[in-house]
Design a binder for these strands. Structure first.
Lengths: 232, 232
DNA sequence: ACCACTTGCGTACACCGTACCCAGTGGCGA
DNA sequence: TCGCCACTGGGTACGGTGTACGCAAGTGGT
């Protein structure tokens, strides 16, 4: 599926290819969420039967893998090589964050059961390890530090998605769901039971969740910096 | 759904309740993964029809929410109050990590579209904020720092799951999938194209991925510590 | 006893992924 | 030039899913 150009040319030329199918799936997922991506709907976009897609893609799970690797390749290629390790890590984090913001459905794909490792993901991983290896960090710590960064970026994307959904009620069409949620909140919540949440709320500490990513990123980089400072 | 004991008592006594249904779903998800959780299968466990469950649970999405809140309540209640903020945060992180290890399917539920906020999740959040508020951190920074920790814990759980799956080939029954993965890897990977990955591999830096969580956690706590040290 | 109300549950529908099979197509060997 | 056959597109069908709807049965308050 990953390689696209090794035709033995013994039959009619294919009118579809895996990348185009993935692009259609990406457009669908961006518009209506990943749960609305179905083989029949993608096939409808090409005015063909659902089973035609299986000539180019082994199954739906692999199609999702390919969609993920495609968006990573679209957005992650451009990168500067100048600057210190910290600013380059910041840029890597911001690029990743932008990918999650434009294609929130990747969170579900990445949390799915099968480990995805496409060529573009592999390139991005090499780039991240390359930045870390020039930071003065011991090579034995480089993969674990990369995992730390990737974990933080992924996790904060999940939190951000939940926050925006709580803020503007988007994505969930069920109006009654919000009513029940509100009722549960008013019934269960009390300042006595949740003193710290109340105190933070009154101090206005929940008003700018969009700044949380940058805040946490700086703390993570500070932690990495502290480890580098210990190295000889 | 969340409240369980407000019967007006005008009909037959219910033989099922939402919590029992959630427990059956948890058992199913623990055993065979979340994709095998279906209303019919849960109903089969109770020897009843699928539609009987809808008397106690609004829908499948809400059932998954309830399952998530139930496992959080099971494992997160016990907590020590002694010790400094750092050791208490470490314990919070380890409890969370244990939850993810025992019930890997929560990752998919938490990455789903709807924001989950059950009573047990709310209790855990208050506890986390309480620890942070006694650490010397300004109250304006407490929620963002909590988000940092939650994001790291969640993200590293995703990475850990992928790593274990790559290590022992579990979860994916498709044997041919692994063959294709191996073929892609051997064809696409080369030390020239991925110098840093190769160098780290030869240095043995990928041999203990299970230590990555503790490593990253210490870096995160170091970053928080650096911020606290700046406060007056 | 009545009956309002709750509970259990069977039926039905729309949708999903995909196994299987068949017809058409066009490059290549004879 | 012609037939072969690997390859393509695509239709049908099957087992699975979530759940809307309706109905019989049971039960505590009046």
């Amino acid at each position: 599926m990953w390689r696209s150009g090794d035709r033995t040319a013994h039959g009619p030329k294919p009118t579809l290819n895996a990348t185009e199918i993935a692009r259609a799936g990406i457009a669908l997922a961006d518009a209506d969420g990943v749960q609305s991506v179905s083989m029949r709907r993608i096939a409808g976009h090409f005015d063909c039967g659902a089973m035609s897609l299986y000539r180019h893609v082994p199954g739906k799970a692999e199609l999702l893998d390919l969609m993920l690797d495609t968006v990573i390749g679209d957005e992650g290629v451009s990168h500067v090589k100048t600057g210190g390790w910290r600013s380059r890590l910041e840029e890597y984090a911001h690029i990743s964050r932008r990918i999650y913001e434009r294609h929130p459905w990747i969170l579900q794909v990445e949390s799915s059961v099968r480990p995805t490792l496409g060529p573009n993901s592999l390139d991005a991983y090499e780039r991240l390890l390359g930045i870390l290896s020039t930071s003065g960090l011991a090579i034995s710590h480089v993969p674990a530090t990369a995992s730390l960064l990737v974990a933080y970026i992924h996790g904060s994307a999940v939190r951000r998605q939940v926050d925006t959904m709580l803020a503007d009620h988007s994505g969930v069409s069920d109006e009654q769901w919000w009513a029940e949620r509100q009722m549960f909140w008013e019934e269960y919540f009390s300042p006595e039971r949740f003193p710290t949440i109340s105190r933070a709320y009154e101090a206005g500490s929940f008003e700018h969740p969009e700044r949380d990513f940058e805040f946490g990123l700086q703390r993570v980089l500070d932690g990495i910096d502290a480890l580098i400072a210990l190295s000889p």
